[in-house]
């Protein structure tokens, strides 16, 4: 990385070789793509995809995120290292969420009875009461 930083070939002193202006067409195209995707997400919410709903929504959101990162955030023109660290951060987010969520899902029943389990669980003592009552 520092190899770029210290290029003493005299170019960087006057040229604008580290500025990569993005063309207006690209910017507008990206914006319209994003708006279009937003419309699609809103529209899909009125259909019922069942279990795929979250996946669909997240997929569209991720496509939008990639567009923003690639063009608006100049990731394509940027140094690969910057892109790596940014994308890399999602690996850690993934670790964090997956472990924590996984553990919660596996343990939650032990302290918060689910509705379906509630009825049989409380039905039992009542039976004894009914039995013991006469």
């Amino acid at each position: 990385m520092s190899a770029h930083a210290h290029s003493d070939d005299g170019h960087s002193a006057d040229g604008h070789d580290f500025a990569h202006p993005m063309s207006v067409q690209t910017l507008l195209a990206v914006f319209f793509a994003l708006t279009f995707l937003t419309v699609i997400t809103v529209a899909q919410a009125s259909f019922d995809f069942g279990a795929f709903e979250v996946a669909t929504v997240m997929f569209i959101a991720t496509v939008k995120a990639v567009l923003v990162m690639a063009f608006f955030m100049h990731m394509l023109a940027d140094k690969p290292f910057n892109a790596i660290i940014f994308i890399g951060s999602f690996v850690f987010v993934g670790l964090f969420v997956i472990f924590t969520l996984g553990d919660s899902l596996m343990t939650s029943h032990s302290f918060e009875p689910k509705v379906e389990e509630l009825a049989p669980a409380v039905a039992e003592p009542t039976i004894t009461t009914v039995d013991g009552a006469p």
Binding site: M1, A5, S12, F18, I85, S89, V93
Partner: peptide
């Protein structure tokens, strides 16, 4: 060089964004 200054700032802000991502995580 201006380029070194720019690259430093850029890396710095990307790292800051990393902290933001983890903050929201």
């Amino acid at each position: 060089t201006p380029e070194q200054q720019f690259d430093s700032g850029k890396l710095g802000i990307w790292l800051f964004l990393v902290t933001e991502v983890l903050f929201f995580s």
